[in-house]
């Protein structure tokens, strides 16, 4: 998820922690967090993924005034769009892998930029879903001082057909 400005905010961290059912006070209580190892409120390890909120072009978010491929009156309003690597997709795309390297832990007040670089692509024949096309993206999250905070590597996979259950 490329973004020029990903402001890390306390309320977003709190909501993200709730969404992964993590009640750790270090994610929302500044007084408590001061006395911990972290020294202040920090974000959970996978929080950087929510930079999608700050990617103006993120294709898995409905945009004002544009058709959305989810259901309304009909099961879908438009033909699904092509997936980019690292994310899911409208039925044909899934998230295959995700890797994070933490150079430091981010917290409220950090303002990150995310630069996305394409990685490798490869193919494989899958038993449960036909031909699989994997594509990798590397995302570098830098802080307000230009220092590398997190390096993320995502692998998305497009399947020929839905995965057999």
């Amino acid at each position: 998820m490329a973004t020029d400005k990903f402001p890390v905010e306390g309320s977003h961290i709190m909501m993200f922690a709730r969404s992964i059912a993590d009640g750790n006070q270090v994610y929302y209580d500044a007084d408590y967090a001061k006395g911990t190892d972290a020294g202040g409120v920090i974000a959970p390890p996978t929080f950087a993924q929510s930079s999608a909120q700050f990617d103006p072009d993120y294709f898995l978010r409905p945009k004002i005034g544009e058709d959305w491929f989810g259901s309304g009156k009909e099961a879908t309003s438009i033909k699904k769009k092509e997936s980019s690597g690292g994310g899911g997709g409208g039925g044909g795309g899934l998230h295959a892998e995700q890797h994070f390297e933490y150079h430091r832990h981010i917290g409220p007040g950090d303002v990150l930029t995310a630069v996305v670089k394409p990685g490798k692509t490869w193919e494989k024949e899958g038993k449960r879903s036909g031909k699989l096309v994997f594509s990798e993206t590397i995302t570098e999250y830098r802080d307000q001082n230009g220092e590398l905070a997190i390096t993320a590597r995502g692998v998305g996979v497009r399947t020929e057909r839905p995965v057999d259950q």
Binding site: H12, Q53, Y58, A75, G89
Partner: peptide, 25 residues
């Protein structure tokens, strides 16, 4: 909740009609 916090609103996670009828899950 995860869709809302992360910003990943892919309907295959929250939209049963789309997921069954279009995505095929």
């Amino acid at each position: 909740m995860y869709a809302g916090a992360s910003g990943d609103y892919n309907p295959v996670h929250t939209d049963e009609k789309f997921t069954k009828e279009v995505a095929g899950y």
